[in-house]
């Protein structure tokens, strides 16, 4: 499935995708947190067939349900294959890391390693899907996705060791941090 994205300056971001059944969906993330889904049977139509609007909170819950947070229809061996190719790692940024005190965009993390930071844990604070303008501070714990090679590359940039690979996506406890 190919997802096309476009910036809508002043409004938010737009994602358009074609589904296997032939439907065309456009998802709009408004800057004020609202999400909208437009459904088109004919992608060239002037007006969508229907639209749904949801709040930030509703969208997150719906997203989690769709992701299968509660019920996972994918068979176990298929899931394992997914896990083999894509992994989620928690990496701590050491003070001497080249990433420390630089913005994500300046470090060109995705270009150089291919891995993506999906969250940053900073003390008690959790920054979900951080902006590219975000500055990484020493001591931050990065939640990254990518293939084994990609996350390994990022790990070297962090000067840390791979902390652990949680099955249920829980952050590492502070005691395990830094034990090489």
């Amino acid at each position: 499935m190919k997802v096309k994205t476009a910036d809508l300056p002043g409004i938010g971001k737009r994602y358009s995708l074609d589904l296997a059944e032939g439907d065309h969906l456009v998802i709009i993330l408004h800057q004020n947190g609202y999400r909208e889904i437009y459904h088109f049977t004919d992608p060239d139509a002037d007006e969508p067939d229907w639209t749904v609007k949801m709040t930030d909170e509703e969208a997150r819950q719906i997203g989690a349900i769709l992701m299968g947070a509660d019920y996972q229809p994918v068979s176990d061996d298929r899931m394992e294959m997914l896990l083999k190719s894509i992994r989620i790692e928690w990496l701590q940024v050491k003070p001497d890391s080249e990433l420390a005190n630089r913005r994500i965009i300046d470090s060109q993390i995705r270009t150089r390693t291919g891995a993506t930071i999906i969250a940053i844990q900073r003390g008690d604070q959790m920054i979900g899907s951080p902006d590219a303008q975000e500055t990484i501070l020493p001591g931050d714990v990065l939640m990254v996705v990518g293939s084994r090679m990609q996350t390994k590359g990022l790990d070297q940039m962090c000067h840390s060791c791979i902390l652990h690979m949680p099955e249920r996506g829980s952050p590492p406890s502070p005691s395990s941090v830094g034990s090489s």
């Binding site: 910036d7 737009r14 456009v26 709009i28 909208e36 437009y38 088109f40």
Partner: peptide
């Protein structure tokens, strides 16, 4: 008028159209 354009695009459900990006960029 940027404010009127943005509001009307949203109200008339035209944010999905391919020209929306162009309109907003030109407004900027």
């Amino acid at each position: 008028s940027s404010s009127m354009s943005a509001k009307m695009l949203d109200e008339q459900k035209r944010l999905a159209h391919p020209e929306t990006e162009f309109i907003l960029a030109l407004l900027i």
